[in-house]
Design a binder for these strands. Structure first.
Lengths: 184, 184
DNA sequence: TGTACATCAGTGAACGCGCGTTCACTGATGTAC
DNA sequence: TGTACATCAGTGAACGCGCGTTCACTGATGTAC
């Protein structure tokens, strides 16, 4: 049955959100279009009324997810105290490590993205560039080379989370140690 | 036709090596057993004479690859000058970034491993633990907290390479900037 | 040392399953008059 | 404003393809006597 334009747009949004969660949790190739549609509350056949392909969905999900993450980072960095240190320490928590589906899309998908089609890479890269700009702007007051500091600190944070996730099941002590080393 | 035990062992080694290259280049799920066997010079049917499953191959490949990488790192760190800085700067080169199939298995597979079966995770985690021990031992003379320094520097290096690879096709300038920031 | 038989690495066809995508169909929405 | 028709979001079956794994078969190797 046909659906109102408002409803349809709402459904599209629900699909992108479901995709964002699934992709972060299991990677692009670990998630079927039917999974996403089911999580969003639909059957799989209608997917192609909203997107040309799974690739287009991945690109849309990257755009939305990283955009939201960047907004969240900017908001946090606007607070008083040592906001970056707080943000980073929460990022490097066991909770974040153990729940990638609700965590940062950059650490969850960075490695996957390198093997995805160009449109997905473009969407992801634009998001990462924006995040790094946000971070560099924050360091502008406190650092002599804010841009470089942003890049290095971000790389370390991403790397620590990815490494910790890789060894978490087999060697929990090492996983915790990796996170702790990059905190504070 | 039956093959001599020596030949069979040699073939097994060839299969693991081919798998190592393929997995690093395309990830575990991006590589078919038939691909690996073809690269090793065989047809796919004989695979199960050597391994119980693709999972077992992945575990074997992780073990061998990271073992070799650790040996290479230890050798480099034994040289004169500033061996760690040299190693890291080569690790963070555009050449390494653009040729993952012949590069470090840790950065190539860390994110994938988190979604692989336990046996693969165990093999990977043991390798990473050994690498971190090697690095911490190297810092023992020069650092007050060599263990922590090893963990942080390794995280940064891994994170920078993974991030750089993620944006390399879409934003080459940013990709180079990410690597450069963590060098020297 | 020579012979007969069992073993098993490698081959290539086949099986079963999951996945991306397509398609015919339904019926409420949107539009033309 | 009311009516007739076209549109299109959603459904669920189906298609085609790739992949992990199995299997019957081959024939050289390894072994028992």
């Amino acid at each position: 049955m046909r659906i109102s334009k408002e409803k349809a747009a709402e459904h599209r949004r629900a699909i992108v959100e479901a995709a964002g969660r699934r992709f972060r949790g299991r990677g692009f190739d670990g998630v079927a279009v039917a999974d996403v549609m089911k999580e969003a509350g639909f059957t799989h056949g209608g997917f192609y009324n909203h997107f040309d392909s799974k690739e287009a969905l991945a690109a849309a999900a990257c755009h939305d997810e990283i955009g939201r993450a960047n907004l969240g980072l900017a908001t946090e960095l606007g607070r008083k105290g040592r906001p970056w240190e707080r943000y980073r320490d929460q990022y490097l928590s066991a909770e974040h490590r153990d729940d990638p589906a609700h965590g940062c899309p950059v650490s969850a998908l960075a490695a996957d993205v390198a093997r995805q089609p160009r449109t997905v890479q473009a969407s992801f890269a634009a998001g990462v560039a924006a995040v790094l700009d946000t971070l560099a702007a924050h360091f502008a007051r406190s650092s002599r080379d804010p841009r470089r500091r942003a890049l290095r600190e971000y790389s370390e944070m991403i790397g620590a989370l990815i490494l910790s996730r890789a060894v978490a099941d087999a060697d929990p002590a090492l996983a915790d140690e990796i996170l702790a080393a990059s905190r504070v």
